[in-house]
Simulated assay, not measured.
Amino acid sequence: MPPLKALEREFSEIDSNFQQFCSSQGILSVEDFLVHDLNVLVAFAEQHDTSKKLKQGITRILSIIDNHHQPWLNGMKLLEDALQNKHVLSTGYEGIDHLLQGGLHQGQLTELVGPSSCGKTQICLQAASNVADKYTGAVMFLDTCNSFSPRRIACFLTRSMSSSSKEDRQRSLERVLRNIFSYSVFDIFALLDVLQQVECKLKSQAFTGDNQVQLLIIDSISSLITPILGGNGANGHSLMTSAGLLLKKLAHEHNLSVLVTNHMVGGEGGSLKPALGESWKSVPHVRILLSRDRGGNLCDASLLKHPSVASGRFVRFMIED
């Protein structure tokens, strides 16, 4: 669920005065309302000169929460949805595709976890190139650390079209790059704002004309979230959960494959652990742990979590720089 600031444009009741009132009560996002005593909040609102407007804002937030409730679905409905609407997108890496039984499943959030230089960005760029080329679908690449590289995309296409003419390669490159939309996002609030805009545009079917968005990539989502997780407050974890829920909602409702990366940090005894910790672990549908020999091109991928494949599966594949 989004931060209040991201809703200001869409809902006039959630103006700066209402946001300031909520902030004074430790409420920064829609999700914060779920753990706050509503009667106490209304009582505080009634003490203000603008109590009528504040209570209108509270009513609006409650309606937003109500709209986020998912309907109950029986097993047959879920099976029909999985078989009819959700497809699989190849990443361009045979090893990863084998691990995932075909590739990135639409409707699912897939996470790549691993230390620096293990191949996370390389896989994201290859997947973007492959989907934009083979499936002629649009790809959204949310870039948090200047990792998006058109030159790398060009290298991928040159390798796959080595027998084609220079003119054919150039036409393919132009077509692929037109299908990839890169956005620079440098904090969690900007991310939530962009995702809200994406949701509105996908609903109106006006985002890419005839090209349907099939893949959404965030490299790396942990770079945006780890700065807000420090201290004893719950606001950072609330924003993290909001981002995860919104990504899963976009994936399910618009048949997107969502691919995010998560870096590693030092844990107890010097061992490495995923940066986003235990609270995030339940958010992705699929988690893949990557590792790579220093100075080499061999990459190992282990399946940590998958809704329909047993965890523990392992593949080794080559990543070309």
Rank of each mutant, 00 (worst) to 15 (best):
M1R: 02
K5Q: 11
K5V: 06
A6W: 03
E10K: 08
E13M: 10
Q20N: 10
C22K: 00
S23E: 04
V35T: 11
N39A: 15
V42W: 04
Q47M: 07
T50H: 13
K53F: 12
K55D: 00
G57V: 08
I61V: 15
I64D: 11
I65C: 11
H68M: 08
P71M: 06
W72K: 13
L73D: 08
N74R: 07
G75K: 02
K77P: 00
K77C: 10
L79C: 08
E80S: 12
G92K: 05
E94F: 06
E94A: 13
G95I: 08
I96R: 04
I96V: 14
D97P: 01
G102E: 12
G103W: 07
G103D: 08
L104K: 05
L109C: 01
T110H: 06
S116I: 05
G119Q: 08
G119D: 09
K120N: 05
C124N: 11
L125H: 09
Q126P: 01
A127M: 06
A127Q: 05
V131K: 03
A132F: 05
A138N: 12
V139T: 04
L142P: 07
S149T: 04
P150R: 09
T158Y: 09
S160F: 01
E167A: 15
Q170C: 10
R171P: 00
L173N: 07
S184Y: 11
V185E: 09
L191T: 09
Q196I: 12
V198G: 03
C200N: 13
K201Q: 15
K203N: 14
S204H: 13
T208F: 15
V213N: 03
Q214P: 00
L215G: 05
I218K: 04
I218E: 01
D219K: 09
I221R: 03
I225P: 02
T226E: 12
I228C: 14
N232G: 09
N232K: 13
G233F: 04
A234K: 05
S238Q: 10
L239G: 02
T241F: 08
A243H: 07
L245M: 08
L245E: 01
L245Q: 04
L247S: 07
L247I: 06
A251C: 04
H254T: 12
V258F: 07
V260Q: 06
M264H: 05
V265T: 13
E268L: 14
E268W: 00
G269M: 11
G269C: 12
G277S: 10
R287A: 10
S291C: 07
D293H: 07
D293K: 13
G295V: 04
G296F: 01
S302N: 12
S308K: 14
V309D: 02
F314A: 05
F314K: 15
V315S: 09
R316S: 15
M318S: 13
I319T: 11
D321A: 13
